[in-house]
């Protein structure tokens, strides 16, 4: 038995760690969690953190990319969200978590090209180590998180989708994110604080 115990313990550790490695999506922020600030490279070459913008009441953090058709379908709507909410204290911060060796169209140079061509009015950051996407629990592009300032911290207020129709913005019936923002700007918890959407899986680095 004495011989078996360490073996059993080792097996348990192994089983647990493989479980965690296989499912990066089971961990991640929930509404109400404090987020850890990041320092990621923007398309202009400068490092960006949430703490940089002292005037921000919060951020609309969008995990998105160049290559996913769903991210492309929502791109103009993400630009419009920034237009609408930056002036109210909630600018967009876009983060591209895809590994460029899996999705070459998501290289830093391609990100720079796209941000310039589409005139992004917000930072477009590269999550090179994919650490931030994992911390947030992002699984797909686009995947949105609204974080709000609370003292020295930022706290998650909303996780999920922009609206209920990816194909055609004119057929949208429910604007999930905007509804949540209306509540958040009024100082209330979002009535619907978590929604789901179809998207492209994040292109994780191959082990």
């Amino acid at each position: 038995m004495k011989k078996i115990l360490p073996l059993l313990a080792a097996y348990l550790v192994l089983a647990l760690s493989s479980f965690i490695m296989l499912r990066p999506d089971v961990v991640g922020y929930q509404v109400g969690d404090k987020v850890v600030d990041f320092k990621l490279k923007n398309v202009d070459g400068k490092l960006v953190s949430l703490a940089d913008n002292k005037a921000a009441k919060g951020y609309i953090v969008v995990f998105t990319c160049n290559t996913c058709p769903y991210a492309q379908a929502y791109e103009s709507r993400i630009l419009a969200l920034h237009q609408k909410y930056a002036s109210q204290g909630y600018p967009v911060v876009a983060i591209n978590p895809n590994d460029p060796s899996v999705a070459p169209g998501d290289s830093f140079a391609e990100m720079q090209k796209r941000a310039k061509a589409k005139q992004y009015g917000f930072p477009y950051l590269q999550d090179e180590t994919q650490q931030i996407a994992k911390q947030y629990g992002a699984t797909r592009t686009p995947h949105l998180y609204v974080v709000a300032r609370q003292g020295a911290d930022f706290v998650v207020r909303y996780i999920g989708a922009i609206d209920d129709n990816s194909e055609d913005a004119t057929l949208v019936k429910t604007k999930y994110l905007e509804n949540a923002m209306t509540d958040i700007l009024a100082g209330k918890p979002a009535t619907v604080n978590s929604t789901k959407a179809i998207g492209c899986s994040i292109k994780w680095k191959r082990a």
């Binding site: 699984t139 797909r140 989708a161 209920d164 999930y176 789901k196 959407a197 998207g199």
Partner: peptide, 20 residues
Amino acid sequence: EPDPNTYLNKIDAKWSGALP
């Protein structure tokens, strides 16, 4: 179906919406 937020959970609660 247009709205994944409505149908994804009805297919499987664990599905976040990423494909495949």
